[in-house]
Design a protein around this nucleic acid. Structure first.
Lengths: 185, 185
DNA sequence: GCGCGTCTGGGACAGTTGACCCACTTCGCC
DNA sequence: GGCGAAGTGGGTCAACTGTCCCAGACGCGC
């Protein structure tokens, strides 16, 4: 993952990987069957990791639901900003998997996992603030993930911090538009 | 572009490209200086093309602004669905450019172009239906592009048509939330 | 101390890649 | 008809890649 984040998936050759890990080249095929097999494992591992990191960012001490939503979006942007290469690597891994027949099933699972994570966050938020979502949680979760991917991509492309912050406000509003009877002062 | 869409950026070797074009390998370096130079040209060309295609999809015969917005989102999704490989190629090209120092400036221009295009569409829509956007057009344009990228990515990953359609409704609502005194029946 | 499974070191292999070269053909224009 | 630029063909080159191989070192349980 260190190699992929630093130099991209294309540069993650067997030699580059073992150099990073400080192990002999022979150990590579001793440990894993092939390069594709390793990439597959990396995706699985890294998707799972993404989940725990983002879950931990849920701020249930915020004064209201809107602040909590906004803070969670903000935490994610901060994550991207603090390690852009890593986030770009995630996109690259997804694209690579889509292109590789043996890995073609992984992106589906990856996004299922993302959507489940978003749904979990939304539910926890609603429960904490006594609010309710006015549409199926899965639809709203997909919306959240789409927006998150979207602002990540645009920030990666132009690194416009101020625009990204304004975008986060819009995203928060868009999500909050689907609350019922919430205590969202 | 044909090669990139079919097999990905990584497979777009000089030999694959000349084979697709039916020209001798020597012609490659005769026509362009290097592979990176060609990729740079491809990105520029393709970004410009994206613009004209999407502009043409603007439906000003819709009964109201909401329908027009919805139809434009729908047309884009249809574009993605009709040629997923092409759209994936766009993402791959962006990622590749971000990784290649010589091309690092391109994604910024690419997204500037996208944002300008969205702003143009939004303005045309508002003018046509006598509505007004309640926030800076550039912010809303960035929001539109982010959502567009987002639903494209999620559809590419899981190919869930029904979920994508529902997502489009949410996206449309989110945009329409920022209209003033519009004739949006 | 011995044996054996675990891991390492160095090397090798065939295949692919971007780039380059140079003699040759083709073709429009004078 | 001939001339010069534009383009072609075939070949070569060094670099790099994934994968495999095998002799040996290491360490741990008996």
């Amino acid at each position: 993952m260190a190699v992929i984040a630093r130099d991209g998936v294309a540069a993650a050759t067997t030699r580059a990987i073992v150099a990073e890990a400080g192990m002999p080249l022979a150990s590579f095929h001793y440990a894993v069957g092939s390069r594709d097999e390793l990439l597959s494992d990396v995706i699985e591992l890294v998707v799972a990791g993404e989940g725990t990191v983002t879950l931990a960012s849920l701020d249930l001490d915020a004064p209201d639901l809107r602040s909590a939503v906004r803070a969670t979006f903000g935490a994610y942007l901060e994550l991207v900003r603090s390690d852009p290469a890593r986030e770009q690597a995630m996109f690259e891994l997804t694209q690579h998997a889509l292109r590789t027949p043996a890995l073609a099933e992984l992106p589906r699972q990856q996004y299922r996992s993302y959507h489940a994570l978003a749904a979990q966050l939304l539910e926890a938020g609603a429960r904490r603030y006594g609010a309710e979502w006015s549409l199926p949680i899965d639809d709203l979760a997909r919306f959240v993930i789409a927006i998150t991917d979207g602002f990540t991509l645009s920030w990666l492309a132009d690194r416009d911090d101020a625009a990204a912050e304004r975008l986060l406000e819009l995203a928060t509003d868009a999500v909050m538009a689907h609350t019922l009877n919430g205590a969202h002062a």
